[in-house]
């Protein structure tokens, strides 16, 4: 399986751990990457909201730089990058005038892009739906049993339309984390927005949103919240301290990437998985996992019940 890889600007700074561990996971699962040469920023939500045509042209340059014959699919680990690549491709296919105008702009840089040539995928989608849960299970050397991991999807894995998961009740990450053996509670806030760039515009508004999300996870006794987007990670992690001082709370919930916890289950050294890059320490979570070994054994034994044992009494029908 070979894909084009669009790291996104966060990968070079804020979400370095996500980029690095994603590459490790991909290698373990046999996913081959070809990073787009000289890719540029996707414009996040800012560019699109102010100036539409240059925003589409900005994203389209990335699609045009991909050799579609060699790699007809591009993976973005960041949800915002994923949605911008996908949106540009789909809108160009749907609106003829937009397609023409974007291509006139691209031609000024000696490039062209035919809509539909490259399909945009989120890394989580590729891991769960192309590689599949069975293949993930095969690569596992350790169970994550004993850890309560709360999956948080944010906005763009299921919205606005035809994305890889449901807009309100996504399941991909839930199933993945369950496959890894973790306890996965039903987190009702899993698709509520983290506030995006609101942290830069209104501290009051963004901290209120973040507190809501953290309180929900805290009530489920989360050992960690698991994310697949650098923006979600940054907001929940770097501003957790500010939430605590604004609301007199004491949340200490590490915000980790799904690629990092997959690495744990694949037997990779926790030190190479860059948990220390989080502002909120993951130490307590890792220690809990390391000492949770007996529980996981107990769980496995319960699953392997003797087939010849007497059946459990059935409930009487009234």
């Amino acid at each position: 399986m070979k894909y084009a890889w669009y790291p996104g600007c966060s990968a070079e700074g804020n979400s370095f751990a996500y980029d690095e561990t994603s590459r490790m996971i991909a290698e373990a699962l046999g996913i081959e990457f070809q990073e787009i040469d000289d890719w540029n920023c996707c414009g996040a939500t800012e560019y699109f909201s102010v100036n539409q045509l240059p925003a589409y042209a900005l994203v389209a340059r990335n699609l045009a730089l991909i050799n579609a014959e060699e790699t007809p699919q591009v993976i973005a680990p960041c949800s915002a990058c994923y949605i911008n690549l996908k949106k540009t491709d789909e809108k160009m296919a749907k609106y003829e005038q937009l397609n023409t105008e974007v291509n006139v702009a691209l031609a000024a840089g000696n490039l062209s892009y035919e809509p539909g040539a490259v399909k945009s995928r989120h890394f989580l989608d590729v891991v769960c739906n192309d590689v599949g849960y069975e293949a993930v299970k095969e690569k596992m050397t350790q169970s994550l049993a004993g850890l309560t991991l709360v999956p948080y999807y944010g906005c763009y894995m299921g919205r606005p339309e035809d994305n890889f998961d449901h807009p309100e009740r996504p399941q991909t990450m839930d199933t993945l984390l369950k496959t890894l053996g973790a306890d996965v509670p039903d987190y009702s806030l899993k698709t509520i927005c983290c506030g995006g760039h609101m942290t830069q515009l209104s501290a009051e508004a963004s901290l209120r949103i973040l507190r809501h999300l953290l309180e929900g996870a805290n009530q489920l006794n989360a050992d960690a919240m698991v994310v697949g987007c650098p923006m979600c990670q940054l907001n929940l992690d770097a501003y957790q301290k500010d939430v605590n001082s604004a609301y007199k709370t004491n949340y200490q919930i590490p915000i980790v990437y799904f690629s990092q916890v997959m690495g744990l289950a694949f037997g990779m050294d926790p030190e190479t998985l860059m948990f220390e890059r989080g502002i909120v320490s993951s130490k307590a979570m890792l220690e809990k996992w390391l000492t949770a070994e007996p529980a996981s054994k107990k769980r496995r034994r319960r699953e392997k019940r003797d087939k010849n044992a007497l059946p459990m009494p059935k409930q009487l029908e009234s």
Binding site: D38, R61, E101, V102
Partner: peptide, 17 residues
Amino acid sequence: KNMGQLRAILDKAKEIG
């Protein structure tokens, strides 16, 4: 690397838009 190319694309897009 190819900032000149990106600028040309964006300038053209602004011109049309």
